[in-house]
């Protein structure tokens, strides 16, 4: 059996100059599922929580405590919606990628190639870079709002001394490396997991791939946690008051 592993997401069809890839399709589907699920839950929200509502409330409480505990009361409350969405979206995209049909159902695209219809959203670097950019842009905005424009610029020259000129590029590279490490970590984990499962499926098709799917569930959760915790950590660092 031939193993087909593609590093880039495969295009399904074209809208103007933009190719719509299968990873984009799954991220849209995950987003839609989350929005519809939240709307349904919102309509049926009750004071006495049922079992499902209890789980959701527990999750929200967990994220809320994480934000407020790390970034403080004022900033923490502001970032709960953003990082909560990161967490839920990454988790659902990762776990959704384990459903049957991902990578197996194929379709003939506009170029005439046979390509998979679904691909886990986070196994495309574009998705994760987009999220990392949003996260780091939020860090910059919150840093400016917490310290003012001058304080924000001064932050790049800390500690102020004759070395500051050299320190500026170091700080700049540090900010950029945050984007790279956030995005490549998530992409690498999910892509490597996919590849590993495929390879295991080819080597030993019976029972063994199931264990790796279980491992993937764990990794999917851990990676969603790490992305969220690191985003909160960067925001907390950028908004903390010096003394």
């Amino acid at each position: 059996m031939e193993i087909e592993i593609s590093l880039a997401a495969e295009p399904l069809f074209q809208i103007g100059p933009v190719a719509f890839t299968n990873a984009m399709l799954t991220s849209v589907l995950v987003g839609l599922a989350l929005v519809i699920g939240s709307l349904v839950l919102y309509r049926r929200w009750s004071l006495v929580p049922g079992r499902f509502q209890g789980v959701v409330e527990m999750g929200i409480g967990f994220i809320y405590n994480l934000c407020v505990g790390t970034a403080g009361e004022k900033v923490g409350r502001r970032i709960v919606p953003l990082v909560g969405t990161f967490f839920v979206f990454i988790l659902m995209a990762n776990w959704g990628g384990l459903l049957p049909g991902y990578g197996v159902l194929t379709i003939r695209n506009f170029e005439g190639h046979q390509v998979p219809l679904f691909r886990p959203a986070n196994s495309d670097l574009n998705t994760t870079v987009a999220m990392a950019l949003i996260s780091i842009a939020t860090v910059q905005v919150l840093s400016i709002s917490a310290r003012g424009v001058l304080g924000y610029i001064k932050e790049f020259f800390e500690p102020i001394s004759f070395m500051s000129v050299i320190l500026f590029p170091v700080h700049l590279i540090g900010e950029i490396s945050h984007i790279i490490s956030l995005s490549v970590r998530l992409f690498g984990n999910i892509f490597a997991g996919e590849t590993l499962t495929i390879v295991m499926y080819v080597l030993i098709p019976l029972l063994v791939p199931t264990m790796f799917l279980g491992l993937e569930m764990l990794f999917g959760f851990i990676q969603a946690m790490i992305f969220t915790v690191l985003s909160i950590g960067y925001i907390a660092l950028a908004t903390a008051k010096h003394d």
Binding site: S181, V184, F187, G188, N189, A192, M225, I226, V229
Partner: peptide
């Protein structure tokens, strides 16, 4: 610990990529 292990593991994932 799981968070820290995940962060350390990411380095191996970079190598794998």
């Amino acid at each position: 610990m799981i968070l820290g292990a995940g962060l350390a593991e990411a380095v191996a994932i970079y190598a794998l990529l």
